[in-house]
Simulated assay, not measured.
Amino acid sequence: MSNINTIGLHEGSASQLAEKLNELLANYQIFYMNVRGYHWNVKGPQFFELHAKFEELYTDLLTKVDEVAERILTLGHQPVHAYSDYVTMSRIAEDKNVTDGEACVRGTLQGFQTLIELQRELLSLASDADDEGTAAQAGDYIREQEKTAWMLNAYLG
């Protein structure tokens, strides 16, 4: 019996990658709901600007949720799909009932910082496993989210 999966990766490496991707998926799901909550609940003088920005961000996050889950499946593993698991696996905590615009932006910035950190860990694992598909996905996300983090930080002054 072969120790290589369908896409040519060693099963042990694919399993490690899937585990890290499931952790990333959990963080994306919790962060998605946080940003969705910011969109719904933000109040104040920057309402229109922030409401639109949060919608842009949560729409992109939802796309990434699907892409991360599909990468787990591509590796031959099952994505976690219960919110109870997401809450226990996520480094990002649920952020409930936040209405202040600045607090919403700070929560969004912190969420992106956590995702970037996790994706760097994933990138390292993927590189060690010669998994170009996962490495490319993580690298693309990091590049995009570093710019978003810079902009959110600039917004906060």
Score class of each variant (00 low, 15 high):
E94V: 08
E67T: 12
E67P: 12
Y32I: 12
A18G: 07
Y58S: 05
H51M: 14
G8A: 03
G37V: 01
F54P: 00
H77R: 09
G8D: 01
Y38I: 08
L62V: 08
N22W: 02
N22C: 00
Y58P: 00
T63N: 15
L73V: 10
I92D: 03
I92C: 04
K20I: 07
N22V: 01
V80D: 02
V42Q: 04
L61P: 06
V80L: 06
M89S: 03
E49G: 08
D66A: 00
M33T: 13
G37D: 09
E55P: 05
S90Y: 08
G8Y: 08
N22I: 00
D66M: 04
H39T: 07
D66E: 13
A82L: 11
E49H: 11
S90I: 06
K43I: 07
I92L: 12
G76H: 05
N41H: 07
E11M: 10
S15F: 02
T74A: 13
E94D: 10
E55Y: 07
G37Y: 04
P45R: 01
E23V: 12
E11G: 00
G37W: 01
T63S: 15
V68E: 00
A26G: 09
V87H: 03
Q16M: 11
I92Q: 09
L21H: 02
Y83Q: 04
P79T: 09
G8I: 05
A69D: 07
I30C: 05
F47K: 08
D60C: 03
T88V: 11
N27Y: 08
P79F: 04
N27I: 10
A93M: 11
T63H: 15
Y58C: 07
V65E: 08
E70Y: 15
S84M: 14
L61D: 12
P45C: 06
Y86P: 07
E55G: 05
W40D: 06
D85Y: 13
N22L: 00
P79R: 00
N27K: 03
L75Y: 06
I72F: 04
Y38G: 01
H39W: 07
A14G: 01
N22Q: 08
G8F: 09
H39C: 13
E23R: 14
S13N: 14
H81E: 13
W40H: 03
R36Q: 14
E11K: 10
P79N: 06
L24W: 02
L24A: 07
T88N: 15
F48S: 13
Q29V: 13
N22A: 00
